[in-house]
């Protein structure tokens, strides 16, 4: 079974982020790393391929400046190869533009299953994977907390507020996975050393046969009009237990109307 994992390479969340004042978009000119939320999809894909007894995991990513650092991390975990779309015309792409590019790249890999995170850690739109599914004409299942493949069907436990739904879908399909789906492995010493020689196919928009006017800032139908700093969190109230803490906590919860 061949699985494609959509992986995003993002600015290191540990470093202070900066916005481009002209476009209000995140500055992505520095070194990028694998989005932590994508490590779950990579791990899930590796486990599904193992369980199937054959096949391989292909990574698909769109990033500026031919950036591959994040891809190497996922290759070190065990993915077999990667397709990277990197093209200056993609600067300023919105979620749909990104989905068009990813869908075109995924089509080349002809996968049985496409996995993605529910949302990225830097953009948080959470819309790209289902747009990719729509463009590919694949069914999509979101918020998977458990994924199993049986024959030509994918069985998913889909996280809901109350519990989970059991969903089955024919393959090929797009499934987005939550952070609870599996515990990502550490890239091993051997995996890290092998990652360098694994193939990364770098493509442009033209290579994918996409009209440049449909992607990038030109094709974007979404624009960020303004950005406001989030309000600083107020400090909480510390309850010191002098024998009556439980009463004060109950009182507090009653005030919040949660009891």
């Amino acid at each position: 079974m061949n699985v494609v994992v959509c992986v995003k390479q993002i600015p290191d969340p540990a470093a202070p982020p900066s916005l481009d004042p002209a476009t209000n978009t995140l500055n992505r000119s520095g070194k990028l790393i694998l989005d932590d939320s994508d490590a779950y999809g990579v791990e899930m894909a590796l486990q599904l391929v193992d369980a199937a007894g054959g096949g391989e995991v292909t990574l698909v990513s769109m990033a500026p400046n031919g950036e591959v650092s994040g891809l190497r991390t996922a290759l070190a975990m065990g993915a077999a190869k990667a397709i990277l779309v990197s093209d200056d015309v993609l600067v300023g792409s919105d979620a749909l533009g990104t989905a068009k590019v990813l869908a075109a790249a995924i089509r080349r890999a002809a996968p049985d299953l496409v996995l993605a995170a529910t949302e990225s850690t830097d953009g948080y739109t959470g819309t790209t994977p289902v747009q990719v599914a729509e463009l590919l004409g694949f069914p999509s299942v979101t918020f998977a907390k458990k994924v199993e493949v049986s024959g030509s069907t994918v069985k998913v436990q889909r996280q809901t507020e109350a519990g989970f739904d059991e969903v089955e879908s024919p393959l090929p399909a797009v499934v987005t996975v939550t952070a609870g789906v599996v515990e990502p492995r550490y890239p091993s010493f051997k995996g890290i050393m092998a990652a360098k020689s694994k193939p990364v196919e770098t493509l442009t928009v033209a290579d994918l046969g996409i009209d440049p006017s449909e992607v990038g800032a030109t094709g974007a139908r979404q624009a960020i009009t303004s950005v406001t700093a989030a309000e600083a969190r107020q400090s909480g109230e510390i309850v010191v237990d002098e024998g009556d803490a439980h009463e004060r906590i109950i009182q507090f919860l009653e005030q919040l109307k949660v009891l």
Partner: peptide, 14 residues
């Protein structure tokens, strides 16, 4: 190097 960065990250995470 990318490999050393990845190795150091694995060691740190471990």
């Amino acid at each position: 190097s990318e490999e050393m960065t990845a190795l150091l990250e694995t060691v740190r995470r471990f």
